[in-house]
Amino acid sequence: MKKLSKLRAGFLAGLIMTIFAAFFVDINDARAEYGDVVINNYSDGAGMRPVVFPHWFHRMRFRCKVCHADLGFKFKAGGNEINMVKIIDGQFCGACHNGEIAWSVENCNLCHSAKPNTPTQVHESTVQKLAQPTGASKK
């Protein structure tokens, strides 16, 4: 009798966890804002969520030149080999995200906010659409 109730408890707990998992893990086509860049050079490996960089938010505040000429960001998703040491050292994102111009690095989850295992990409880019037609599995 006891064994049975244990079994049932395990089953029910499993069921509930599955329901919760189904609620949170949403396997849909990625469809973030046009121009959002996902950077996942090191994040997954380090057990962090990948970074989402919202272009739209930044271009409302800074012209392209500030980051792409002054700060040396290349026009290539994942092509800058940014890491936290460089950021804390004031390079790349750290040039502004230093607590003076913009909020600083302790707000990990504001940048590291993508779903785990999201590959590096410029979201909704023409290249992405050409390389991965709708309906193709996104891996």
């Binding site: 949170f24 086509d29 469809r31 973030a32 804002e33 959002d36 409302m60 993508a114």
Partner: peptide
């Protein structure tokens, strides 16, 4: 222009995601 928790890229289980500005409020 979906808000970050619904846009498919951001992780809705991440607290920071919900602090981000939804694009439409700026556009």
């Amino acid at each position: 222009n979906l808000p970050p928790p619904e846009d498919g890229i951001h992780d809705p289980a991440n607290d920071g995601t919900h602090a981000l500005q939804p694009p439409l409020t700026a556009f």
